[in-house]
Computed example of a mutant assay.
Amino acid sequence: MRSAVVDLGGKVAVITGGTRGIGRQIAGKFVEHGASVVVTGRGRDAGERAEKELGVHGPALYVEGDVTSRSDAERMVDSAIGAYGRLDVLVNNAGGGAAFAPLAEMTDDAWHDTIALNLHSVFYATRRALSYLVPQGSGRIITISSMEGKHADPGMGPYAAAKHAVIGLMRSLAREVGPSGVTANCVCPGMVFTDLLRSQGGAIAAAMGMTFDQLVTVFTERSAIRRATTADEVAMATVFLASDAAAAVTGSAWSVDGGVTCC
């Protein structure tokens, strides 16, 4: 049921990496709350499936592309204008790790690929979105960072660096565009059991010198709520930041990690 507090009726949102995992959950919640969405990704099968499933509840469009490509990222943002005639919200959700290893063993390619996916993509899409949002005098930029953007674990150097960086980028942007009615915020999830975590979790754990089961135990025990964060919890925080009710929330980095980074 749609909440009047977080009503997104009439809004148009682009959600990068919106065909699976946290991004897919965000897209679903946006549609449930009245928004029209563009979801982006690199897998056509997953994208077409997401478009069909989301379309049952409201307007949804899948756009294929690679967010690390400037031209693709810009085309993804532009597609909202072509499909719906406006843009109100950009959710920079696409991200992940190209490789996990101690810094002394990190390859150049792993470093550059991780920074490109988690930081450069945010820059490309955000810059394009601002060309629409600032002139219309309203809008929301929401970037999915991570608990690794507030602290850092071994073996995750480039990922942690990029997730710290996007928080700084959004805080600087908030100062730049605040008077124009545009807000810029981050959401910092804790451990969320997505297909991406399941596929990369072993490598993350190995880089930290443990098994995947031990990794889950460590992060769960760090949490004040003693469990993993759910994609739905992350999505609902994002929905609120996209709503009119969050007009005075900007430059923030919301922890949705069960208290992992509370102290």
Rank of each mutant, 00 (worst) to 15 (best):
M1Q: 14
A235M: 08
G155A: 13
A231E: 06
T261K: 09
V134F: 03
R86G: 05
V31W: 08
S172G: 15
G97F: 04
V260F: 09
H57W: 11
I115G: 09
A101N: 07
R140V: 04
R70I: 12
S71T: 04
A152M: 04
G10H: 00
A13H: 14
A125V: 08
A27C: 07
G155W: 15
R171F: 07
D232Y: 06
A205G: 03
M106A: 13
G55I: 05
V91N: 11
Q200G: 06
K29T: 02
R171K: 11
A231H: 08
H33G: 00
M156L: 15
G259L: 10
R128F: 10
R140T: 02
E32A: 06
Y132D: 00
Q136C: 11
G9P: 05
R175F: 04
T211Y: 03
V182F: 04
G201M: 05
T16H: 12
A46P: 03
E74S: 03
M156N: 13
V249E: 09
G202M: 07
I81A: 01
D66E: 12
G181R: 07
V12G: 03
R175Q: 13
R49G: 10
I22M: 10
A246H: 11
R140I: 00
A224K: 12
L241F: 02
A235W: 06
A160S: 15
V6G: 01
R140S: 08
A73T: 10
I142S: 08
V177D: 11
A247L: 02
A162C: 09
I144D: 13
F212P: 00
G251Y: 09
V37K: 00
L61Y: 03
S79D: 01
D72E: 04
A165M: 05
V239C: 08
A99L: 11
Q136W: 13
G28M: 02
R86W: 05
D78A: 06
L119Y: 15
N93V: 02
F30Q: 02
A27Q: 02
F240R: 01
V39I: 09
T68M: 06
H151T: 15
D213T: 15
T16L: 14
L130N: 06
C262D: 11
A110K: 05
A99V: 08
L90N: 01
